[in-house]
Nucleic acid binder design. Structure first.
Lengths: 111, 111
DNA sequence: ACCACTCCTTTGCATTGCATAGTAGGTGCA
DNA sequence: TGCACCTACTATGCAATGCAAAGGAGTGGT
């Protein structure tokens, strides 16, 4: 499982917004989804991020009853959140390419 | 310039090891190299990382005189450091792919 | 009554990047 | 000599993040 605490700093926020892009999702479900995709993260990691994203206006929340347990807090991406997600994705692509380039450099290519 | 404080957390360490992979490099030069590759980082960010990597045995240091200024502290990747760099690269590739997959998901692909 | 599962919340800590500031060696020009 | 200007490393303190640990509350099975 991909779980280096330092490596995923800052990535989770964007990934969580990404998960809520198409459908409303509740926190516990996000933990499961992230795990299924390779991010073995803790609930105590995801929930504070959701609170933060809601406070910043990137997610809106709504409680809905569940048939099999306590009520769920469904999160929906706001229009502001959509803009922020776009910015995050652009930043991610650039950062990703910089790292890839540095790690791929061979002898003699150094400048 | 790619400079989201949170996004690059944990990435810099591996990138710095990567820069010292083929040739001995001194700290000030690394700041320049990172900047040239798209990471606009501060000296106060790079030097503590170098100290940390040296203490952990991943880099070895040696002072050498310079023709144009004060002596430079050249860092060389140790065999331990080489192993650690390999591990970092593997972790990076996995993490990168997970993020890419989450951000690329379209409606209906959600599970 | 007890346990397991689901779902959310809070507290406190370790790690990291970095702004800020300081120290110091060397060159070149007046 | 004095001074400006690079080069190069070091130290302090803060903010943001992930997360271990713990708890609470709802539901269903035995």
């Amino acid at each position: 499982m991909v779980t280096d605490t330092q490596l995923i700093k800052g990535l989770l926020e964007g990934c969580i917004l990404g998960l809520a892009r198409h459908d409303d999702v509740y926190g516990y479900r996000m933990v499961e989804m992230l795990g299924a995709r390779g991010f073995d993260v803790n609930e105590a990691t995801v929930y504070p991020i959701l609170v933060r994203l809601e406070n910043r206006g990137f997610l809106s929340a709504e409680m809905r009853p569940s048939a099999i347990g306590p009520a769920r807090k469904y999160y929906r991406l706001t229009s502001q959140g959509r803009v922020y997600l776009e910015e995050f994705m652009a930043l991610w692509l650039r950062t990703r390419d910089v790292v890839d380039r540095i790690l791929a450099e061979r002898e003699g290519e150094v400048t």
